[in-house]
């Protein structure tokens, strides 16, 4: 099992253990629906092979998500199931290591369909009906809006007194990475989410506020959704590689969830 997932489980045990006894003694299963909006800040460069030498720079952007969910609770334990969409903007810039000029710039916004399943426990329940839960969620992402491209950045030079051009940079990138080419195209998000749910404020409706810490695994290339590799050649007819770099973008996001039950 992946080390990230082990950490997730251990985190759950550490946070949840003190609150187990606080869960209410309910026998009946209760079902609720809720709509949930998500704002996630990407935290880039988490991979060990991430951008280090300055050829590739990555602006950390923000994701936006919206989902409709159903949840069923019994004895302080609950499951949730949701369908939604996730908007994820991504970008990178390739810089010439010698002239410090931008060789290539790219950005792309991907839209994923999300299916989220999760399990949670109610760690604390207050007298007025508000409560604090801790969820572990698995989200499967799918997109038909991926982008894969190979770009050869060319530069001119003089060859025997005649103008010629040669490849200065090889740039190969992949946004999304969830093409259903094979089963490896599945992309997964695992998240740990403490959620506070208020007492009923608008009739039966309550507000849910959550802190979403998620890690992304699984795609059809390097285990990342967005990946690029860059090789810079000496140029002028000399294909000696003077700098090389790969990146695998955000494996971690931290975000805010805002929901309304109905």
């Amino acid at each position: 099992m992946n080390i990230k997932n082990i950490i997730c489980c251990l985190t759950l045990m550490g946070i949840a253990a003190p609150g187990i006894n606080a869960s209410a003694q309910k026998k009946k299963t209760t079902f609720r629906f809720f709509a949930e909006g998500a704002w996630q800040q990407q935290i880039n460069g988490m991979d060990i092979q991430g951008a280090k030498r300055g050829l590739i720079s990555l602006p950390a952007k923000s994701n936006l998500g919206l989902s409709l969910n159903a949840t069923g609770e019994k004895n302080g334990f609950y499951l949730r199931f949701g369908l939604g969409i996730l908007q994820q903007p991504s970008a990178f810039t390739v810089t010439d290591p010698e002239q410090h000029t931008v060789l290539y710039r790219s950005d792309f916004t991907n839209y994923y369909t999300t299916i989220k399943v999760g399990a949670g426990i109610i760690a604390k329940r207050w007298q007025n009906g508000s409560r604090l839960g801790l969820e572990l969620n698995y989200t499967a992402l799918s997109s038909n809006n991926n982008k894969t491209d190979v770009v050869l950045v060319k530069q001119g030079y003089m060859l025997s007194g005649q103008p010629a051009e040669d490849v200065r940079a090889y740039i190969d990138y992949d946004y999304g990475g969830t093409e259903p080419v094979d089963l490896g195209g599945i992309l997964s998000l695992f998240s740990v989410t403490p959620v506070y749910q208020s007492r009923p404020l608008f009739g039966r409706s309550a507000i849910r506020v959550g802190l979403d810490i998620s890690t992304k695994v699984g795609a059809n290339r390097y285990g990342s959704t967005n990946a690029a590799q860059v090789a810079i050649f000496k140029g002028g007819g000399d294909r000696t590689i003077i700098a090389e770099e790969k990146y695998f973008d955000q494996h971690l996001t931290i975000g805010l969830l805002l929901g309304l039950t109905f």
């Binding site: 099992m1 992946n2 997730c8 698995y138 089963l183 490896g184 997964s188 695992f190």
Partner: peptide, 25 residues
């Protein structure tokens, strides 16, 4: 409850892992 939660999560993780393993690109 804690064991149930951990089992549910681990099951989902293993499912994704097995699907990944069967991909032989």
């Amino acid at each position: 409850k804690l064991i149930l939660t951990s089992f549910a999560f681990t099951g989902l993780t293993l499912t994704a892992w097995i699907i990944g393993a069967t991909s032989c690109a």
